[in-house]
Design a protein around this nucleic acid. Sequence first.
DNA 1: CGGCGTGTTCAGAA
DNA 2: CTTCTGAACACGCC
Length: 267
Amino acid sequence: MPELPDVEGFRRIMADHAVGTRIADVVTLDTGVLHGVSVRRLRATLRGERFEPPRRVGKWLIAPVTGGAVVVLHFGMTGSLDWGDGPDGRQRHDRVVFVVGDGELRYRDQRKLQGLWLLRAGAQLERLLDGTGPDALEVPRSRFTELLAARRQVKPLLADQSVVAGLGNLLVDEILWRGKVNPRAPAASVDADALHRQMRRVLRSAVRAGRVPPRPSWLTGRRDEPSGSCARCGTTLSHGRVGGRAPCGARTASPVDDPRESGKPVP
DNA sequence: CGGCGTGTTCAGAA
DNA sequence: CTTCTGAACACGCC
C-alpha cells in the first residue's frame, strides 16, 4: 500500500498524536523488523525522550527524538502506522509499539520487507538516505525535466527511488495513464512538463485523501474488475508487465502488443 | 501446492 | 557501460 501519500498520512498521524510528549516505553513485538539495533538499545535510547516533528523523504518516514537519535521507518509493501488509545486493539502484525502521551503508536507490517532503523541525526542518517532522489512533491519542474532526459523506459524510471522518491507502481500507472503516456516509452521522448503537471495533480489528490487509491475511479480500481474499462474511451483494458511489475489488479496475463495497455493513450 | 503482490536489492543477461 | 529481467526477501490470500 504505502507510496508517498500513504507515508505522508503516517507522518501526519505521528505529528498529530506523538510529538512533544514523553516516550514512556518501546515494545518490540517482533525483532525481525529491527535493522542494526537491539531491542534493548532501542528501548533504552528512546525511553524518556520526546518525538520531534517528523519529516518524510519519498517513502521514508524520519522521526527525530530529543537527545539526537532518529527513528527511521520504511513501510515496504504492507506496512502502516496506526494510533491507538491503549494496548487494546493491537493487531497481529504490529511489530513495534511506541507508548507515548495518552496512547500508542504502532508500526505494523505483515511482510516485514523493510523495517525500522535507529540512527544518529547527521552523517548516519544521510548515509541511509544517500542515493534517494528528490522527493516527488518537492522536485522542481526544471530538475524533473533533466531527470527525464534518459534512454530508459519511463515507468521504471519514475518508480526508481534514486531518480525521484515516492512513486510506486500504482502512482506511476495512474500518472502515465492520465498523461496518455506509454509506460514503455523512452523517458526522453515524453513531454516532461505535462508529466510533471500530472504527477503533481495525482499526488495532491492522493495526499489529500491520505491514501493511494483515493477514489475507485482511479485506473487501479478499474483493473480490479474482470473486464475493467478505460474511463476515457471504454475500451477493455489489457495489461502487461514493465520493469518486472504488473499493473495493480492484473488477474490475467496477456502480452502487451496492443498500445492500449494500462497507461497508454486511447484516442 | 502454485501464483501473486502498492516495497527494495542484487546478479546476470541483453 | 547502461538497461532490463527475474529472483529473493517474508507472509497471507486466493
